[in-house]
């Protein structure tokens, strides 16, 4: 390498910053780095400045403008609305906004009405819950008080246009208490009352068309457990404040008996 190409340390010191800041042209940068390799003193000075730069770049806060500042600036800039001038007689922009707004509002209202309107199933659940709650009031549980299924069943037959399956499950822990007429889903229905320990259980039954069986659906409402299913052309609603598992057990007992009675 030629002597003229080499840097002395004085020259080198004055170039450290420019080198670090990427302000040297490529031939000067090459000469500078060659000097650094050969000179420990300049090399140390270079490293110190490079580390300072890295520290500042990494740790100094890069402040970002708050979001509202952009809006504030845009709001302060002049913003003529030439479109409004094209139709001096009618403020079309506002009319468009108005019509769009009215349509949106109408849609929103319809949609919220639609969303808030209870489905048929919801309404029926409410009726079942209300009926059960009413039946729990004093002297309102049973119209016919009998633990004998052979008394309850004919009693229903006299008053309804269908004959529900009435079974006493006293052996299994669900003694029959009695029967009652009730009105659900805009029709008279059979209500059978069972007891399970301290819990009262209402079973509502009425004929359902079409005659498709549906599997049991469990829900809970206002602290009550409900199970609903259809079987052999009848619609069943079970409701009680007992736990869902016991209620489902009762459902299986009943379903078994219904299947049996239909085979006879």
């Amino acid at each position: 390498m030629l002597v003229e190409d080499k840097l002395d340390c004085n020259e080198s010191q004055s170039l450290i910053a420019a080198y670090i800041d990427g302000e040297l042209d490529s031939s000067s940068a090459i000469r500078y780095s060659a000097h650094l390799e050969a000179c420990p003193a300049c090399s140390a000075a270079y490293r110190q400045m490079r580390d300072l730069q890295a520290t500042v770049k990494t740790h100094a806060t890069q402040y970002a403008a708050p979001a509202y500042l952009r809006e504030r600036i845009q709001a302060a800039l002049p913003r003529p609305a030439p479109r409004a001038r094209k139709f001096p007689k009618l403020p079309w922009t506002w009319i468009n906004f108005g019509v769009t707004g009215a349509c949106s509002l109408a849609f929103a209202v319809m949609f919220s009405v639609y969303v808030q309107a209870p489905s048929l199933q919801d309404r029926l659940e409410d009726e079942v819950v209300a009926s059960h709650a009413r039946s729990m009031m004093v002297n309102h549980l049973s119209d016919v008080i009998s633990t004998d299924q052979h008394t309850v069943k004919p009693w229903f037959s006299d008053k309804l246009d269908f004959s529900p399956t009435v079974v006493d499950f006293a052996q299994q822990g669900f003694p029959l208490i009695g029967g009652r007429l009730d009105y659900l889903d805009q029709r008279p229905v059979a209500a059978m009352i069972y007891r399970h320990r301290l819990h009262t259980l209402n079973l509502f039954v009425w004929p359902e068309t079409p005659h498709n069986d549906t599997p049991p659906v469990s829900t809970s409402k206002q602290g009550y457990q409900l199970i609903h299913w259809t079987q052999s052309g009848m619609c069943y609603w079970l409701i009680s404040d007992m736990n869902g598992q016991d209620l489902m057990e009762f459902k299986h007992l009943l379903s078994g008996e219904i299947d049996k009675s239909n085979k006879h």
Partner: peptide, 27 residues
């Protein structure tokens, strides 16, 4: 009318050109 459109263009150009540097300015 022409002036108004120019003005609107000016605002739009200004925003397109300068608003990207908002953070740099704020910093």
């Amino acid at each position: 009318m022409g002036i108004r459109l120019d003005e609107q263009d000016k605002t739009r150009n200004f925003e397109a050109l300068l608003l990207p540097h908002l953070d740099a300015a704020y910093n």
